[in-house]
C-alpha cells in the first residue's frame, strides 16, 4: 500500500518535469505571461483607469473584483461551515482536559497584551486603508485585526474575548462585510453600469469616474476586512474549544 502510493506521486512528478522543459525562460520579460496585453494593460493603465498606485490592489479589488468578492465569500463560508460542523456536536459536558490550567491569567502577559492590542488594531487599520499605495489591503488588515482578538483570547481566555467580540457578532460582521462588498457592486449596477462597475458611483458622489473607482475600492476593502476579522476570530474560537466555546486553550 505504501509503495502503491508512490506511483501516482511519481507519475505526477514526471509529468510536471516533462512540461517544465517547454516553459519560457525564467524571469524573461518576453515570456507570454509577462508580455501579454492583459499584464501590460495592468501595468500601463492602472493609473489612468483607477488612479491607484498599487497595481495589485487595483487588480484585486477592481479589475478582478468579482474574484475577490467570491474570495471573501469563501472566507465567510469557512466560518459558517466550521460553525455548522462544530455547533451542538458531541459531548455537551464540560470535560476538563489534562493540559487545561485553571490558573489566573498571568499578570505580565495580560498587561503586555493590554498595551499591544491597540497598537495592533491601529496597525490593522493602517494596513487596510493604505492598501492603495503600499502592500496591504483588506485581507491583511482583517487578519491583523482578527489576530488582536485572538491575542486577547490567548492571554486571558476565550470567555473574556467573547465578551468583547460575541460569537453572534462574528456572523453578523462577516455577513455585513459581504453585504458591503456586493452592495457596492449592486449600487453601481443600479446606477447604470455592470455589476461592480464602481465608476458609475461618480453619478452620486462628487468625484471623477476614476476617483470613484479609487474610493469604492476602499469601501470594498473595508468589507473584506470586516469579514476576515470576524471569521478569523470565529475560526479560532470554534477550533480552540471544539465548538463548545468554553474557556478555550
Amino acid at each position: 500500500m505504501k509503495l502503491l502510493s508512490y506511483i501516482p506521486v511519481l507519475v505526477v512528478g514526471v509529468l510536471l518535469l516533462y512540461a517544465a522543459k517547454d516553459f519560457p525562460e525564467w524571469g524573461s520579460p518576453d515570456a507570454p505571461a509577462s508580455k501579454s496585453p492583459v499584464s501590460s494593460h495592468f501595468i500601463a493603465n492602472t493609473g489612468v483607469d483607477t488612479e491607484v498606485p498599487n497595481m495589485v490592489t487595483a487588480v484585486l479589488a477592481d479589475y478582478r473584483g468579482f474574484d475577490t468578492m467570491f474570495e471573501t465569500v469563501v472566507v465567510f463560508i469557512a466560518g459558517m461551515a466550521v460553525l455548522a460542523i462544530l455547533k451542538n456536536s458531541g459531548r455537551k459536558k464540560l470535560v476538563k482536559r489534562e493540559f487545561e490550567v485553571d490558573a489566573e491569567p498571568d499578570l505580565i502577559v495580560t498587561n503586555t497584551v493590554r498595551l499591544l492590542v491597540p497598537v495592533i488594531q491601529i496597525f490593522a487599520f493602517y494596513v487596510l486603508a493604505h492598501g492603495h499605495v503600499s502592500p496591504g489591503g483588506g485581507f491583511q488588515g482583517g487578519v491583523l485585526m482578527g489576530a488582536s482578538f485572538i491575542l486577547v483570547a490567548l492571554s486571558w481566555d476565550l470567555e473574556t474575548a467573547l465578551i468583547r467580540f460575541p460569537l453572534n457578532w462574528t456572523t453578523i460582521l462577516g455577513g455585513l462585510g459581504i453585504f458591503l462588498y456586493a452592495g457596492i457592486g449592486l449600487l453601481s449596477m443600479f446606477l447604470g453600469g455592470e455589476f461592480l462597475d464602481y465608476s458609475e458611483l461618480a453619478n452620486i458622489f462628487p468625484v471623477s469616474r476614476e476617483m470613484a473607482r479609487y474610493h469604492a475600492m476602499l469601501g470594498v476593502e473595508i468589507g473584506v476586512g470586516l469579514t476576515v476579522t470576524a471569521i478569523m476570530f470565529s475560526l479560532y474560537a470554534n477550533l480552540s474549544t471544539e465548538g463548545r466555546l468554553q474557556r478555550g486553550l
Binding site: 501579454s36 496585453p37 492583459v38 494593460h41 495592468f42 477592481d62 479589475y63 478582478r64 473584483g65 468579482f66 474574484d67 453600469g193 455592470e194 455589476f195 461592480l196 462597475d197 464602481y198 465608476s199 458609475e200
Partner: peptide
Amino acid sequence: SYLFGGWTLDAYPRGVGI
C-alpha cells in the same frame, strides 16, 4: 458576454476584467 466592473471588450483588452 457580461463584463464585471465595466471592463468592456470595446475599450479594454479581453481578459482584463472577469
